[in-house]
Design a protein around this nucleic acid. Structure first.
Length: 573
DNA sequence: GTTAGGG
DNA sequence: CCCTAAC
């Protein structure tokens, strides 16, 4: 996996930091996928020579001899970055982290003993004015900041320049920044590391810079190197993570420090992971950071959304559209809206039981109404016929699509259907009251040839409706359908004026057709309730009446009083 | 918006 | 019952 990958490298430490008393000889190696370190070939060395020159200033890592050997790289988690970036520059952090691992034990051995610094710091918490050596004085200032573990560079007021600090001061600053001590003696590394901590940024120039308002101000630094720095820093992160993950002995302190830097760099590099440890330094908490929601969180969110969505489609409380303006306006009958009981109404004339789902007009049957199908079938009659017919339409390949549309449609439909209407039961007792407000909704969407779909809802005309229609025609005149609708079918929200007109037309047809003879008719077709002869007779009368009156254009009102004038002319409307 | 008529 | 032209 890392065959092509990068070569880690070593050179004699030519760090500008002359304080390094312990020169380290680096050896260029290649990290194999399994973590083995393979001595680099000449080609590989040549490959990175340029990098060495460019990044020389970053290479003055102080590492105890032999530490480089212990570095292992977990390719499983960092392979990508490793393959993309120069492994060589990782050394900086790798070494630093390796060093940090042993920081507690190294403290005493370090040339600048951190422990003594700590003591001094504690003693000089409020001793900024103590008369000490100039060096100590500066230390005191830094120590004051360090005691809170939060950097307080108030004396520098927003502008921090680390360039002129000594190694020891840098150590103090480091400690103030990260809350831990370090034995790294490399000034540049310390500066950059501190700058990273202070600015939460990995874009730290390798040369002089000033930190102002938590931002890096470069001093004559070119833009080009910045990108490199960022990338390098990211790479360093990866290495640090790997180191942290593979090394179980790691100290909590170090973990949090790594984490902090990592998160800060992530922020900058817009690479965010959700595996942040819980332990964060204080200053971390003050830093806003982008955090990708955890997977679980995302799932929960989506689930909520889903619930909301489905909930919306299931329980819409919207007003019905054109179909039932009236029924919606009417006061709701005192029924639980959630009740899904379906009452049946006994049609006294036809002797049929038809479902009475209250005033829902032109909406497709809900799923649960399908459960009633069996009932429809067993009950026979025209209701059964109509339902089976509509069901047949819906069971084609388009069914799924239709159902999807159904949901949408229902949102726009009056869903007061779930209400049960006691009055209908009363009417059932009354028999065929003209106030009968029967309703049933079995609406199916039918694909049309045009590619669209149309809602097909079939509601068989009850005898009561027919009678009411006939009366309406006789009273207001055939053709005044809107008036009939308004005055006689006000409570039949599902019957439009067009419906009335159509029905009347059918009635006319029936009335002038030869009397049905049972033997001829297919019993299957005859499920449709026959219109009682008296009604048909009345229809014919009215038709003849209109046939006569209508040409006049003036006398639709005469219809009611006209009685039977010259009978048998054209049976036409 | 209503009505008539074809489908 | 839907669709649409005509009014």
């Amino acid at each position: 996996m890392f065959e092509d990958g990068r070569v880690e490298k070593t050179t004699p430490s030519n760090s500008p930091t002359k304080q390094i008393s312990d020169p380290v000889v680096y050896k260029l190696v290649r990290v194999e996928g399994d973590g083995r370190l393979v001595p680099a070939t000449d080609d590989e060395i040549m490959e990175v020579v340029d990098l060495l020159k460019d990044d020389n200033s970053e290479m003055h890592i102080v590492a105890e001899s032999g530490q480089a050997v212990g570095i292992s790289i977990d390719d499983s988690s960092s392979g990508k970055s490793l393959s993309e970036l120069s492994g060589f520059s990782k050394f900086e952090d790798v070494y630093a982290d390796a060093e940090n691992l042993e920081a507690p034990t190294q403290e005493t051995a370090a040339p600048v003993a951190p422990s003594s610094d700590i003591d001094q710091m504690k003693q000089s918490v409020d001793a900024a004015e103590c008369s000490k050596s100039p060096d100590q004085m500066r230390e005191s200032e830094l120590s004051c900041a360090a005691t809170s573990l939060l950097p307080d560079f108030s004396k520098l007021k927003g502008e921090i320049c680390l360039d002129h600090l000594s190694i020891r001061e840098l150590h103090e600053t480091f400690r103030a920044t990260f809350g831990r001590v370090t034995t790294v003696k490399d000034k540049t590394w310390l500066k950059r590391r501190i700058a990273m901590g202070l600015t939460n940024c990995c874009d730290i120039p390798s040369t002089s810079f000033v930190i102002k308002d938590n931002q890096i101000l470069k001093l004559g630094e070119e833009e080009n190197s910045n990108n490199v720095n960022c990338a390098v820093a990211t790479d360093q992160d990866v290495v640090a993570i790997d180191d942290q993950q593979t090394d179980s002995d790691i100290s909590q302190k170090k973990q949090s420090e790594d984490c902090q830097i990592i998160s800060g760099k992530r922020l900058n590099c817009e690479y965010i992971e959700d595996s942040l440890p819980e332990v964060l330094n204080q200053e971390q908490k003050t830093v806003k950071r982008l955090r990708k929601p955890t997977k679980r969180y995302i799932e929960e969110l989506s689930e909520v959304e889903h619930h909301e969505h489905t909930g919306r489609s299931i329980t819409p409380a919207k007003s019905c559209g054109r179909d039932c303006p009236k029924s919606c306006a009417r006061p709701a009958k005192n029924v639980s809206p959630d009740s899904r009981t379906y009452f049946t109404r006994l049609d006294s004339v036809a002797g049929l039981r038809v479902p009475c789902v209250s005033r829902v007009r032109r909406s497709r049957p809900r799923k649960d109404i399908m459960a009633l199908v069996g009932f429809y079938h067993s009950s026979g009659g025209m209701a059964g016929k109509s339902v089976s017919k509509t069901l047949g339409t819906s069971s084609d390949p388009k069914k799924i699509q239709n159902q999807g549309i159904e949901l949408v449609e229902k949102d726009n439909q009056c869903l007061a259907i779930d209400k049960v209407e006691p009055e209908q039961n009363l009417e059932a007792k009354h028999g065929d009251s003209l106030d009968d407000d029967a309703s049933e909704d079995n609406i199916v969407t039918v694909p049309t040839a045009k590619g669209g779909i149309r809602r097909k809802h079939h509601r068989a005309w009850t005898l009561a409706e027919v009678m009411r229609l006939v009366e309406g025609v006789s009273r207001y005149g055939a053709g005044r359908w809107s008036e009939i609708k308004r005055l006689a079918f006000a409570s039949y929200s599902y019957r439009t004026s067009v419906d009335l007109k159509d029905k009347w037309r059918n009635l006319l047809k029936a009335s002038f057709a030869p009397a049905p003879t049972d033997k001829v008719m297919n019993p299957r077709k005859h499920v449709s309730m026959p219109i009682p002869a008296p009604i048909l007779l009345r229809v014919r009368e009215l038709a003849e009446l209109h046939a006569q009156a209508s040409p006049n254009l003036s006398t639709s009102k005469l219809v009611g009083c006209g009685g039977s004038v010259n009978g048998t002319r054209s049976g036409y409307l």
